[in-house]
Design a protein around this nucleic acid. Structure first.
Lengths: 128, 128
DNA sequence: ATAGGGCTTCCAGTCACTGGAAGGTCAAGG
DNA sequence: CCTTGACCTTCCAGTGACTGGAAGCCCTAT
C-alpha cells in the first residue's frame, strides 16, 4: 500500500509517517516509481505507534517498545517498567493540571467579567 | 538589580528572562557595563509572568495579560475570557490524560512483569 | 595579579511534528 | 495524445518555550 492508504489505516498523517521513516522507526520498501510501499508489518507497526503515542509514550520509548515487540525473548518486566514510567508521568501531569485548574477556576469565579477594569484575576497574578 | 537577583526573586532562570527580553515581554534598562538593570516594575512583571505561565497561559496570552494589566481602562471581561480559555484547555488536557491513565493502568495491571516474554501491554498496543 | 563568579552575545539543539514549495507519477476523461 | 487532478517525492523552514554551551567581558576579593 501507498502512504495515503496506510495513513488512513493507521490514523497518522502522511507527514508523520515520513518523519517516522526519517528517524528510523519504520523502513518501508520503495516501488520502481520511488513511492514508499508499505507491507502489512509496516502497517501494524504504524498502528502500534499510533496507540503507543496515544498512551503517552515518547517517540524514544516507542522505539524501545517496538524493539521489545519484535524481540521474542524479551522480559515483560522491561515493557512494564516503560509503561509504569509513562503512567507516573501522566499522574504527575494530572496533579499539576489539577493544581492549575483549582487556582485558575477560583480566580475566574471571582471575576465579574464586565466592562469595569477591576479584576481579581490580574490581582491574583500580580500578588498571589 | 542584576539578572541573577531578579531570577532568584521571580523564580525564572536567567536564560528565560533573557529570552523574554528577546521576544519583547520585558525591556530592562542597561548599565554602563552592558549588564541588564531590572527595576521593581520589571521584577513585578517577571513574577506576574511566572505565575501566569504557571497557570497555563501561553506566552502569547501572557503578552496580552501584561498589556491588560497595564491598561487601566481595560474591561475585566477580556481578562476573564483569556482565563476561561486557559481553563478549558486545562480541562481538555485533563480529560485526555484521564483516558490515557485508565487504559495504561489497566494494561500495567494485567502485565505480570517478570522474565517471560508474554506481555498484555504489547498485545494491547498491537491490537486494541 | 589572579581567581572566581556573574554577566554578555550568539548559535545550535530539544520534541514531535507541520507547512509549504517545487516537481515527478498515475489513472481517467476528452 | 493531452490534460487534469490527485497522489507522491524531497528539501527547507517554522512551531513553542525554552535550554545548553562556547567565547569572552566585568567585578570583587585576596
Amino acid at each position: 500500500m501507498n502512504i495515503g492508504e496506510v495513513a488512513e489505516a493507521s490514523g497518522l498523517p502522511a507527514k508523520t509517517i515520513r518523519y517516522y521513516e526519517d528517524i528510523g522507526l519504520i523502513r518501508p520498501a520503495r516501488g520502481g516509481n520511488g513511492y514508499r510501499v508499505f507491507s502489512d508489518a509496516d502497517r501494524h507497526k504504524l498502528i502500534f505507534l499510533t496507540r503507543a503515542r496515544g498512551l503517552g509514550f515518547s517517540v524514544a520509548e516507542c522505539r524501545t517498545l517496538l524493539s521489545l515487540y519484535e524481540d521474542k525473548s524479551r522480559a515483560s518486566s522491561d515493557v512494564r517498567e516503560l509503561a509504569e514510567g509513562a503512567l507516573t508521568r501522566i499522574e504527575a501531569k494530572m496533579a499539576e493540571l489539577q493544581q492549575m485548574r483549582g487556582a485558575l477556576s477560583e480566580l475566574v469565579h471571582r471575576c465579574h467579567g464586565d466592562t469595569r477594569p477591576d479584576c481579581p484575576i490580574l490581582e491574583g497574578l500580580a500578588s498571589a
